[in-house]
Design a protein around this nucleic acid. Structure first.
Lengths: 231, 231
DNA sequence: GCATTTGCTTGATAAATATCAAAATTTTGT
DNA sequence: ACAAAATTTTGATATTTATCAAGCAAATGC
């Protein structure tokens, strides 16, 4: 493991406020693992033995039922998953797989729970982190229940644009994954892009040109109570 | 306020472990309010000034976008809402309205945040509570993304049955609200009940007879990773 | 370079869900 | 008890979304 990794973890909101000793106690029990693309890291229903930290690569959280599956979110460096199951000493509600080759830090769940009882700053950070995750999931749910698939796509593109600050945005993963994340089939994603063409959305593989931003914004009706500024 | 109310609040998971002094400090700043049916208690986008506790009645959390609205959850005594916004000192992501005449305890958000910094047991309870809320919302999202509306209804009825332990279950609110909660229109809910008739679902106003439970279970395919045992 | 796989798109069709209008039923108020 | 209001149901239709099949295109392997 590189020193930069340790520093990156230390600077996560979750761990930044901890005492040095507590952090060391946590960190020395952790271990780093490399995974190729397409590996399932954890499965729904498994006991939560580790808190995972994405140091490099991309990880998809997804869920399955009755033969169907759907992406819930995609994580990039540096972020943790899945805290809630670890804290509740419960089973995972979601599975995780790498979307690209990734380096993942794994911290034993038991250690997280015990250190959290002693380090008040960590406990407070946990509260902030959980509250944020909860709120993001509520937004995700609102997005699903209140919008059509094309509206979800339009808002997704606008968020990408806000992050990337360029007229041409690049999708961070393949369209199949995007479709699943947005709660639609790949076929429908393709058609939704077509529907957005009159609003200045020009597709070129993973590169999307957004000419006529105002028109797209008019269609999307972005809402700070649904569309997370980050991520 | 009745002594029983104070006791009920004290026994909430969230407050049960606190020191007596800390609880008193919190409780003495709180005040109780009565609301008739159909009153909006808080609105999306408002700053979170109070943690609310439902002591009596029923409260619907719902969200709005672009003229549409949807129920996210319905709360019954004794439970709190909405913790995450209070802890993050953020605006509410959901609105709340009474579904029936209700008594609500309101605890100033600032007080919650300051007491939480001093009482470690409260902080730990917050962590457990937030993790639970988060997980419930993930389940809610999975329910929406992975199931059809009729499947959601079937699983909802089975959960009601598990709670009420009777062959005939009673819907806790009107069908319009249920439809919204399940993410469908009232018209479709009506038709979904029709679709479930072959599985032994007999509707009589708010009373639903579940003859042939096994058939309904076969259709519903309940999953502990989606269908919350409580609530 | 060419074949093969993989990912994406397109078309035709089906299923799920929403909308609109009206009828039927229940609840509410007096 | 009865009129009025609100809720629920039903029918007809439109929209949204999914499925299935085929075609196209870009990436991959040899």
């Amino acid at each position: 493991m590189r020193p930069a990794d340790k520093s990156a973890v230390r600077h996560l909101d979750l761990f930044a406020g901890m005492s040095e000793e507590a952090f060391e106690a946590l960190f020395e029990t952790a271990y780093l693992q490399r995974f190729p693309q397409g590996v399932q890291l954890i499965g729904e229903g498994d006991p939560a033995d580790f808190l995972h930290v994405v140091l490099d690569g991309q990880v998809e959280l997804f869920a399955t039922w009755n033969g169907r599956d759907t992406a819930i979110t995609v994580l990039r460096p540096v972020s943790t998953f899945i805290l809630a199951a670890v804290l509740r000493d419960a089973v995972y509600l979601m599975s995780a797989r790498t979307l690209e080759a990734s380096r993942i830090l794994m911290i034993p769940a038991e250690k997280i729970r015990s250190v959290m009882l002693e380090d008040a700053a960590l406990a407070q950070a946990m509260i902030r982190e959980l509250a944020t995750c909860y709120r993001q999931t509520v937004m995700n749910l609102k997005n699903q229940k209140l919008r059509t698939s094309t509206e979800r796509l339009a808002n997704y593109l606008l968020r990408l644009h806000q992050q990337q600050q360029q007229e041409s945005v690049t999708l961070p993963f393949d369209k199949r994954t995007l479709a699943s994340l947005l709660g639609m089939t790949p076929e429908n994603l393709s058609r939704a892009f077509g529907t957005l063409k009159p609003y200045g959305v020009e597709v070129n593989g993973r590169d999307i040109h957004l000419t006529r931003l105002d028109e797209l914004e008019g269609f999307a009706k972005a809402d700070p109570l649904i569309d997370v500024p980050t991520n």
